[in-house]
Structures are given as C-alpha cells and as structure tokens.
C-alpha cells in the first residue's frame, strides 16, 4: 500500500502441494513475494500456472502446505478474514470472466458499488477512467458478447483494477493481444506498481514481458512437477539453473 512496506514479505507460499483428486499437479512449492514486487509465474502449457493462481486467491484449498499473506495464514483463516483479504485482490481470469448479463460499465460498477461509498457520478468517472487505461474508452455500454476476445481480456483487466487492489493477479493478460497493446499493458502493470505500490503476480508465456516487467520469476517444471527456479529472469537467462529453464527462456524446443 505505501512505500514503507516495501521490502516486507507480502505473499509467502510454503511447501504447497496442489492436486485435483488423486492427481498431483505440483508439489513442494516455496517462494516469497515482497510488497511492490512484480512476480511472473511461468512454465509450459498445462503445468499448473492457473491452478497455482486459483490456490493463491482461495478458490481451491491446497492438499498440503500453506499460503501466507503478511505473515498470516490464508488457508487456515476464518471465512470472514478470507473475505476481507479477497477485497484487497484484483483478479484477471484467463478467459476474462466478465459477467455476461452486464455491460462493461456495469461489470466495473459492481465492485465499486459493493465496497465504496462513491456517488453515481463519481463511479461513472472511475469507470471511464479505468476503461480508458486499457484502451476501451467509449465501450461502456457494450455487452461482453459484443466485443472481441482480446477486448474482453482488457475489460477484465479494468475490472480487476476497479478497487485499486493491493495485489493484482493476472492470468495471461497479454494472450490474444497484439504486440502494441501487450507492450502498453506491460507499461500499465509497472505504472500500477509504481503509483499504487501494488504487488503484481502475473502468469505469462510472453518472453518479452517476462524480461521487461518481472522482478522475480517462478518456473514450474511440468516434468518434475515442482518449481525448479526462482529469481530474476535476466539472471536466470545469464546463468540458467537448469536446462529446462534455459530452453524455456531461449525458445529452444530441443528437437533439432
């Protein structure tokens, strides 16, 4: 939230194991995210990045291990505490997940109405501002079905930012965006971090954005079923901790 918290641990994942029934997706995940850091979760398709995100925001409970926010256990906290924590999160889902029965404006208005005391005119100002941040100014009255997939993604981003959250979770924000929008998105993420001091956790495959925005990166290895690297991606590229990370960061498919 404010600058003096910078440097304190915001999110801590301890010995996390994630499973769907008997099928263990990932085990033994350990990492810490500091206040105001931008952390990228990367790894091959289907390795469990979205699943990790769903655990971090409390939609699934871990089969083992713990997740801590500001040194307090999130997994074991009561329903009310969880709800309180949730209000400080902004989440962008992989498919956008806009409420299809509402216009873009109403999608952003809902959290504002629910948790702030703003007047209707203030709310509509905030809505236009958030939409303009993601390049969708003027689309207030459109329904999600009337815009393209990439636009839905951006509108989802605007909704995630509606309450100026302390932590932003983005699941593949730049998938389906053109290069220009996606680099503008990277700027936006850094800007949000700098101006609001938000902590940002991004799932992405986009190598360029990984190198541009990430302070740290978590690499999930689909073969080993655990994280095999954690640190600054530029350092990782210079001195790869293992071959899979090197191949991921250099787009080496290993077939030739």
């Amino acid at each position: 939230m404010n600058a003096n918290q910078n440097g304190n641990v915001h999110i801590e994942v301890r010995g996390l194991e994630m499973a769907y029934g008997d099928f263990v997706v990932m085990r033994d995940l350990n990492f810490k995210v500091l206040h105001g850091e931008v952390v990228v979760i990367m790894g091959g398709s289907g390795c469990g990045k979205s699943t990790l995100l769903r655990h971090l925001i409390g939609l699934r409970s871990p089969s083992k291990g713990d997740i801590l926010y500001d040194n307090e256990s999130f997994v074991q906290s009561s329903e009310e505490e969880k709800l309180r924590k949730l209000r400080s999160f902004g989440v962008l889902y992989q498919g956008g997940a806009l409420w299809s029965s509402m216009t873009l404006a109403e999608n952003i208005i809902l959290p504002l109405e629910e948790y702030t005391n703003l007047t209707p005119s203030e709310i509509s100002d905030v809505v236009s501002y958030k939409l303009s941040l993601v390049g969708l100014a003027g689309f207030e009255g459109f329904y999600p079905s009337e815009i393209s997939g990439g636009m839905r993604k951006r509108a989802g981003l605007a909704r995630a930012m509606a309450l100026d959250p302390e932590i932003l979770y983005f699941d593949e924000p730049s998938a389906g965006l053109d290069p220009i929008s996606s680099s503008r998105l990277d700027d936006l993420i850094l800007q949000l971090r700098d101006s609001l001091g938000s902590t940002v956790v991004v799932v992405t495959h986009e190598l360029q954005s990984i190198f541009d925005i990430a302070d740290k990166a978590v690499f999930l290895d689909v073969e080993k079923r655990t994280m095999t690297a954690y640190g600054n991606p530029n350092d990782m590229l210079r001195d790869p901790p293992n071959d899979n990370v090197r191949r991921f960061l250099t787009r080496d498919s290993g077939t030739d």
Partner: peptide
Amino acid sequence: EIDALRTLG
C-alpha cells in the same frame, strides 16, 4: 463468472 464473484467477496 462465478469465481469472479467469489474472489470479489
């Protein structure tokens, strides 16, 4: 969409 509601509390 339901998850999006839940994560908004």
